[in-house]
C-alpha cells in the first residue's frame, strides 16, 4: 500500500518537474524582473536587522554590535514621538476625510452630465494637474502664495485683507498640503469610480425612470450601490497608507518655519538616516512605521471581509 502511494507521489512530483521544465522559456522571461525585485526589495529586507544593531559600514551587518530594542526605545522615549505621530496622522486623516469623498461625488456628477462635450472637456481639464511633477507643484505654491509677490496675497490685499505668510506658517501648513493635493488629484481619482460606473446597466435606470424615480434617487439607489465595492477597496488601500503621508511632497514643502506641523515620521526617518547618518536609528523608526501600516491594512481588510464586503486578500 504505502509503496504505491509513495510511487504515485513520486510520479506526481516528476510530472510537475517535467511541466516546469517545459516552460523554462517563461522562467527566462521572468528572470530579470525576479532578479530586480530580489536585489532591490528582498535584499534590503535582510538589512532591516541593523535596526537591532549599532551599524557601522566598516563592520558590515553581522559584524556590528547587537543592541536589541535600544533604537526603538530611543524613539519611544524621544520628545519628538507624539509630535511626529500627531503630524503624520493629522495630514493623512485630513487628506482622507476631505480627499476621499470628493472624487466619488465628482464622478457621480460627471456620470450624470447630460452633455457629452462638456463632460469630455471637464474630464480633460481635471486630469491635467495629475501630470504636474511634485517639484513643480510645490514650486507653484511657493510662487503663487509668496508673501511679497504672490498673486494670492496681492488679491487678498486688494480685498482689504492683510498679507498672509502662507508657506511659512505651521498652522496653515496642513491646509496647504491637503488642498494642493486635492487640486492635483481629485480629477484623476475619479477615473477609477468612473470605470466602475460604466458597468451600471442602462436597463436599471430605464426601469427606475418608468417607476418615477428622480435623478437624485437613481444616483443614491443605483449608481452608488454599484460602485460600493470599488469604494471599499479604495478605502482599505488608503487606510493602509495612513502612516505613509506623501513624503516627497511634505519634504519639498517643509521649511524651518513650518517644522512644528510639517515634520512627519517619514521626513524624520530621512533626516536621521541621510542627514545625520544615524542608520540604525532611522531604520528602526522606519520599521516601526512599516509594521503599523501593515497592521492597519490587515485590520481594515479583516473588518470589511467580516462585514461581507470584498477585501484585498
Amino acid at each position: 500500500m504505502q509503496s504505491v502511494e509513495a510511487y504515485q507521489k513520486e510520479r506526481r512530483k516528476a510530472g510537475r518537474l517535467r511541466k516546469a521544465g517545459r516552460c523554462w522559456q517563461l522562467y527566462l522571461l521572468l528572470l530579470p524582473a525576479v532578479a530586480y525585485i530580489f536585489i532591490f526589495n528582498y535584499m534590503p529586507l535582510y538589512g532591516i536587522q541593523i535596526a537591532f544593531r549599532k551599524y557601522s559600514a566598516r563592520k558590515g551587518y553581522l559584524g556590528s554590535a547587537w543592541v536589541g530594542w535600544k533604537n526603538f526605545n530611543r524613539f519611544f522615549n524621544s520628545p519628538d514621538l507624539w509630535r511626529l505621530i500627531k503630524n503624520t496622522l493629522t495630514l493623512s486623516v485630513y487628506s482622507l476625510v476631505v480627499g476621499f469623498p470628493l472624487p466619488i461625488i465628482l464622478s457621480l456628477m460627471l456620470n450624470q452630465c447630460a452633455s457629452g462635450g462638456t463632460k469630455r472637456v471637464v474630464q480633460n481639464v481635471i486630469y491635467a494637474p495629475h501630470f504636474v511633477s511634485m517639484v513643480v507643484l510645490v514650486g507653484m505654491i511657493n510662487v503663487m502664495f509668496s508673501v511679497n509677490s504672490g498673486v494670492v496675497n496681492t488679491v487678498l490685499e486688494k480685498l482689504g485683507h492683510e498679507r498672509v505668510l502662507f508657506v511659512g506658517q505651521a498652522s496653515i501648513f496642513p491646509h496647504m498640503y491637503v488642498w494642493s493635493g486635492i487640486w492635483q488629484n481629485v480629477g484623476w481619482n475619479t477615473v477609477i469610480y468612473f470605470a466602475a460606473l460604466s458597468s451600471v446597466s442602462a436597463d436599471l435606470h430605464d426601469a427606475a425612470i418608468v417607476d418615477g424615480a428622480s435623478k437624485r434617487q437613481r444616483i443614491l439607489h443605483i449608481d452608488l450601490p454599484t460602485i460600493m465595492p470599488t469604494i471599499t477597496i479604495m478605502l482599505i488601500l488608503q487606510i493602509g497608507q495612513l502612516m505613509n503621508v506623501g513624503f516627497e511632497k511634505v519634504f519639498l514643502m517643509q521649511n524651518n518655519l513650518n517644522l512644528q506641523t510639517s515634520e512627519t515620521i517619514q521626513t524624520y526617518v530621512y533626516k536621521m538616516g541621510l542627514q545625520n547618518s544615524d542608520y540604525s536609528y532611522s531604520t528602526a523608526v522606519g520599521l516601526f512605521n512599516n509594521v503599523i501600516n501593515l497592521i492597519l491594512l490587515s485590520t481594515v481588510n479583516m473588518i470589511t471581509r467580516r462585514m461581507g464586503g470584498s477585501g484585498l486578500w
Binding site: 532591490f40 534590503p44 535582510y46 512599516n290
Partner: peptide, 22 residues
C-alpha cells in the same frame, strides 16, 4: 507563488536606509 513574491513587496519594504545601503 511567484505572484505572491511580487505582491508582497507592495505591502512591506526594507525602508529608506536598507535600500540606500544596498
Amino acid at each position: 507563488l511567484l505572484m505572491k513574491y511580487f505582491v508582497f513587496t507592495m505591502y512591506f519594504s526594507g525602508g529608506l536606509i536598507p535600500l540606500f545601503i544596498q
